[in-house]
């Protein structure tokens, strides 16, 4: 089943002489339960692609379908609601809310959506993340790896259609990186979670089901 479909997606920043084509007519699709890695040098357009898929930015041209819905037909508020239900985003710098503790950060998308937190699910998730004993800690009391695990938890809690991870290991040492990648793989297996991950580390990318390589805003290789 096709969960994500990207159609002729282009993004142009600036105008005239300053014009930068970040993404040039990109098309591909992702099946449900797939773990896809997008690789490319810095400035190749991979982050732009991820942000367009996540609906936090709007394209110059082209369409993105998630679960069969064209996300750019929605207005900002609809998109925000769609995002909290169907998309989980993991950032390189975690971007946790400093005043909320681990548990509160993880359940934030549910709370925003006015949904009840299933305590059993939460407990399971915390176990999976290895954060049961840290659930009342604030982000600044955690290590980088732990913070990134919280942000993975935040992405997983809503069981979204798709998880987008933007260099999730870019800020971590190799031990923590390994932990994060195996966590992503585990959630991909256990929950049949679709994951799209950006990285420039080929070692990590190799652990994905499929690698898409981008250069100068174009897909140059897919396998």
């Amino acid at each position: 089943m096709e969960i994500l479909k990207v159609q002729n997606l282009s993004k142009v920043y600036g105008k005239g002489e300053n014009k930068v084509i970040a993404l040039n007519d990109v098309s591909f699709s992702v099946e449900k339960g797939e773990f896809v890695a997008i690789v490319g040098a810095s400035g190749s357009g991979k982050s732009t692609l991820l942000h367009l898929i996540g609906g936090v930015d709007r394209p110059t041209r082209g369409k993105v379908f998630i679960d069969g819905k064209n996300i750019y037909e929605m207005n900002d508020d609809q998109l925000a609601i769609f995002r909290r239900r169907q998309v989980g985003i993991i950032y390189q710098f975690y971007n946790l809310i400093p005043i909320l503790n681990v548990e509160e950060n993880i359940t934030l998308p549910l709370e925003l959506d006015n949904r009840n937190v299933n305590q059993k699910d939460l407990k399971e998730l915390l176990e999976l993340l290895g954060l049961e004993r840290r659930k009342n800690h604030l982000p600044n009391e955690l290590s980088g790896g732990q913070q990134q695990r919280v942000s993975i938890g935040r992405a997983l809690i809503t069981h979204p259609a798709i998880i987008l991870a933007d260099e999730p290991t870019g800020n971590l040492d190799s031990k923590s990186s390994d932990e994060i990648v195996s966590l992503l793989k585990k959630s991909n297996k256990d929950y049949k979670q679709t994951i799209i991950m950006i990285t420039h580390n080929m070692e990590i990318a190799k652990q994905a089901d499929r690698i898409i390589k981008i250069e100068d805003g174009k897909i140059v290789q897919e396998d």
């Binding site: 900002d76 609601i81 995002r83 998308p109």
Partner: peptide, 8 residues
């Protein structure tokens, strides 16, 4: 961040 996790 709040917006990116879906706050309208």
């Amino acid at each position: 961040t709040l917006k990116s996790v879906g706050m309208t």
